[in-house]
Simulated scan of single mutants.
Amino acid sequence: MASRKKDGDNQILRYDDVVLRRSDLGILRGPHYLNDRLIEFYFAHLASSSASSGAVLLVPPSISFWLANCSDSQSLREAADPLRLPDRSLVLFTVNDNLDVAAAEGGSHWSLLVYCRETSEFVHHDSCTGMNLWHAQRLFRAVSGFVGAGEPPQFVEGFTPQQTNGYDCGLYVLAIAEVVCNWFVSGGRGCAKRDERWFTAVDKEVDAVAVNKLRGEMLKLILNLMENK
C-alpha cells in the first residue's frame, strides 16, 4: 500500500512552474474533483496559448486562495503587487470554499471570478449557484482595491451553466475560463452590448458534454507533453 501511494505521487511533468504527479492522471481518468495542480496547469496552458501580450492574467489557485484569506494588509499588498493588476484588462481568479489556510488541497467546490476592466466589474461564475457566493465576495473585497480602476468595481453574478454532479466544478471553471480568454483575444472587448459580455459564448460552448470532453482533452494534453519532454 505504501509503495502504491509513493508511485502515485511521482513527478510526471513540469510545465512552466507547475509540477504534475502520477495521481493527477487518475483524477482525470475517473470522474473526480480537480485539484489545485490540474487547474493551475490548465491556466498555464491557456496563458501560453493566448496572444494577449500580458493583458490577460490567469491567477494560480494558491495565490487566489491566499489573497482571499490573507488577514494582514501588508502581506495582502505584497501578494497583490507582483500581479500588476492595474496593467491588466482581464484577470481570472479561482474561488474555493476552503477556509483553512493550513489545509492543502482543502475545499469541496470551485468557481471562477473574472475581473473585466472595460466594464469595471468582477463577474462570478458558479456552476452550483450560490454555493461559493460568500467566498467570491470575500475575494472581491480583498482584491478590488488593487485593480486601479477609475470607478469602484462592482460584483455581479454571471450566467453559468449548472453542473449535474458533485465533482465537475473545476472543469466548469476551466471551460468558462477558456471561453472568456478566447472571447477577449478574438476581439470581444469593446463589444457595445455591455450586458452580454462573454455570456452568449459561455451559453453556446459550455455544458455537461463539453465539460466531459475537456476532462479527456486535458488527459491527452498531459500525456502528449510527457511523451515530448
Rank of each mutant, 00 (worst) to 15 (best):
D16M: 09
D17H: 00
D17A: 01
L20H: 04
L20K: 01
R21G: 13
R22S: 12
R22L: 11
D24C: 04
L25S: 15
L25V: 14
G26S: 11
G26A: 13
G26V: 11
I27V: 13
I27K: 10
I27M: 13
G30N: 13
H32D: 15
H32Q: 13
H32I: 14
Y33W: 12
L34Y: 06
L34V: 12
L34H: 07
N35V: 10
N35C: 12
D36I: 03
D36T: 07
D36C: 06
D36K: 02
D36H: 03
D36Q: 08
L38C: 08
L38M: 14
I39A: 05
I39V: 14
I39L: 05
F41G: 01
Y42L: 05
Y42W: 12
F43A: 04
F43N: 01
A44P: 01
A44R: 03
H45E: 09
L46R: 03
L46S: 06
A47Y: 00
A47C: 09
S48I: 02
S48M: 05
S49V: 07
S49H: 12
S50V: 03
S52V: 15
S52H: 09
S53C: 11
G54F: 03
G54K: 08
G54T: 08
G54Y: 04
A55H: 04
A55D: 05
L57H: 01
L57D: 01
L57T: 02
L58D: 00
L58A: 01
L58E: 01
V59A: 03
P60M: 09
P60H: 08
P60W: 00
P61G: 13
P61W: 01
S62P: 04
I63F: 01
I63P: 00
I63N: 02
S64V: 07
F65N: 06
W66D: 12
N69W: 06
N69E: 15
N69L: 12
C70D: 11
C70P: 11
S71W: 09
S73I: 13
S73Y: 12
Q74M: 15
Q74P: 06
Q74H: 12
S75W: 06
S75Q: 14
L76P: 02
R77Q: 08
R77D: 04
A79R: 05
A79Y: 00
A80M: 08
P82D: 15
L83T: 03
R84A: 09
P86Y: 05
P86K: 15
D87A: 13
D87S: 12
D87H: 07
R88M: 04
R88G: 03
R88F: 00
V91P: 02
V91T: 11
L92G: 03
T94S: 10
V95G: 07
V95D: 05
V95A: 13
V95M: 13
N96P: 06
N96S: 09
D97S: 13
D97P: 04
D97F: 05
N98C: 10
N98G: 10
N98S: 10
L99S: 08
L99K: 10
L99F: 07
V101N: 15
V101Y: 06
A102Q: 14
A102P: 07
A102S: 15
A103P: 04
A103S: 14
A103V: 14
A103C: 15
A103Q: 11
A104M: 15
A104C: 12
E105T: 15
E105V: 14
E105F: 10
E105A: 10
E105R: 13
G106E: 04
G106C: 11
